[in-house]
């Protein structure tokens, strides 16, 4: 194919794909607006969830309940919820994509586990409104409840994975 032809492509398999994973402990993980953010279930209380995030660039992070109560485990370094978020994010996106998105100093060729990435989180606790992340989670959950359809959708010809 000529250079012009390869650039005239309508259908391209996305270079970075999310992978399936178990979602029991960390039901929601996303890369959004310059943050790795998600929702982590409490280990002790079935009805409580923690909202956690890492910010790209600054390396700041935070963890609180969805009612904005700070996580007790959060001191100068990421708590167990933030660690769980990173672990699941590595499963979902792979370490190289996270290193790139969060601008971490880790080596994408050798970093494998969440630990390899957490070592490069240089920021500190920095509060954001948990509600913003939590409402993203509700939008996400909303998708599994939307009705299916049998309408022809020719536009899906553009989407492959």
């Amino acid at each position: 194919m000529t250079a012009a032809a390869t650039s005239r492509r309508s259908v391209i398999r996305p270079p970075s794909l999310a992978r399936p994973r178990k979602v029991d402990k960390v039901p929601f993980v996303e890369l959004y607006a310059g943050r790795l953010q998600g929702v982590v279930s409490s280990g002790s209380d079935e009805d409580r969830v923690y909202v956690s995030y890492f910010e790209s660039g600054s390396g700041n992070f935070f963890c609180s309940t969805n009612n904005n109560r700070p996580c007790g485990g959060l001191r100068g370094s990421p708590c167990k919820h933030l660690q769980a978020l990173m672990t699941e994010a590595v499963l979902q996106y792979g370490a190289p994509r996270l290193i790139n998105y969060l601008s971490l100093g880790a080596d994408p060729a050798t970093a494998r586990a969440a630990y390899d990435l957490l070592r490069f989180i240089k920021g500190g606790p920095h509060k954001v409104e948990a509600g913003m992340v939590f409402s993203r989670f509700l939008t996400y959950l909303h998708h599994v409840g939307l009705p299916s359809t049998t309408l022809p959708i020719p536009e899906m010809n553009w989407f492959v994975r």
Binding site: A18, R19, P20, H143, V144, S148, T149, T150, L151
Partner: peptide, 8 residues
């Protein structure tokens, strides 16, 4: 036939 879903 189509359905909404999420990434995982």
């Amino acid at each position: 036939i189509s359905a909404f879903k999420v990434d995982v």
